[in-house]
Nucleic acid binder design. Sequence first.
RNA 1: GGCGCGGUAGCCAAGUGGUAAGGCACGGGUCUGCAAAACCUGUAUUCACCGGUUCGAUUCCGGUCCGCGCCUCCA
Length: 466
Amino acid sequence: MALRFFNTLSRSVEDFQPLEDGHVRMYTCGPTVYNFAHIGNFRAYIFEDLLRRHLKFKGYHVTQVMNLTDVDDKTIRGAREKGVSLREYTKPYVDAFFDDLRVLGVEPVEYYPAATDHVQDMITLIHRLFERGLAYQSDDGSIYFSIAKFPAYGKLAHLDVSGLKAGARVAQDEYEKENVADFALWKAWDEADGDVYWDSPWGRGRPGWHIECSAMSMRYLGESFDIHTGGVDNIFPHHEDEIAQSEGATGKLFARFWLHCAHLVVDGRKMSKSLGNFHTLRDVLTRNYSGREIRYILMATHYRQSLNFTFEGLDAARAALQRLDEFILRLQGQATGEEPLTRLPIWAVEAKTRFADCLDDDLNISGALGALFDMVHAGNKAMDAGAFAAEEIWGVLELLDEWHQVLGLLRPEEESVDPKALAILELREQARKAKNWAEADRLREELTVRGWTVQDTAQGPKLKKV
RNA sequence: GGCGCGGUAGCCAAGUGGUAAGGCACGGGUCUGCAAAACCUGUAUUCACCGGUUCGAUUCCGGUCCGCGCCUCCA
């Protein structure tokens, strides 16, 4: 099946082909490093991770860029409040971000450029916009993009620019702009910026928010590239403005495909601190859920569908993973031989095709997981029946490994068994051998209290973390 | 007001113009000392509601109701 994605530009599903054969270039809006990222942010990064992994699975070479916004109102304010430099302020959040990505099993991308390292690129780009007559300087020295000079403005968000009116959310001092919808390319220094500023041909100041993505994507991916992703809330104004700046400067098509991830809500409502339903990844980990479990729940809903996060849902994710883990461990327990031949049973061949076809179809993850679980069922059934040849077991393990490259979920977590629990388990075995069932059950209860459950299998008892 | 998304079993969630994947939870059964896991089996005559097109619609069209997002802080 041909790979296809829903393109926000056309609001329809389109067949995907990269500009360069076999090589996909994509840009991903990254975090503003002024705080710990929350699970909504990570929903987007996990969607992008799935996209990236699937492209690689399809055999594409992928070059991906994720920016780090380390200069904006919030980072400047935070640094000044703490009385530290901008770098000192953002560094811990940058580190935390990468730690969090690792916990979630998100594959590193090729480039993580920081805005503050690319101010010169941004100045150069603003220069080009001046040359093309698309930028102007206001009385306070700030530089704005003139949307009146860029007729295509609004093509992504499907906005009628004339409908944009000054509303309550437009700051009072916007009289400096020619048009209320014009946006800042360069912000002139003011007192609130403290020592955060760069020198430019237009005086001291700092870049506007949107310009960094245009400048850095061009630096690493070229003036035209294949895919640009982000959350739906970025469609307007951020991505619309990126298009204006980039296409305004180059005269070329900027990104060909725009993929946007829907929001995550918690208990049916937008996450907000006042509602008490705001969760950073760290908060959720504190409640004893693993990164892998969180990855599952964030990934299992189609990216264009809004995702309602609940702890009940997270428990369901845990249970689903346990079913997968049981199957994988069971297979591994039966895999014998050294350098095995592999062969796929017919039901695995079907699952393999279905899995790939679903993901090709705009990353239909639910369909792909359906194929996976159907295979688990068929595999368990075959094992129960003893109708599972050694090379088939190896073949299915190989397929699961392949899928793991895409999902990042199919490696059971190592469980460190505590010695005390093992000792109790041993006592229980002795009681069972003596047919002292009351004592055996009492010891099992003791293990339960300690957070372990016992499975008596043909190969002896096994301990499982509850 | 403008732009956009969604309403499918107790919960989560795919899907197709021809009669409803999968996961979780729950009931019955097989296995087991009992469990657990696995397997078998039962759970939506029905896909918000009302019309229309059609031999046939959950799927297409129109309308209604409900929920949600964006409209220059935001993944």
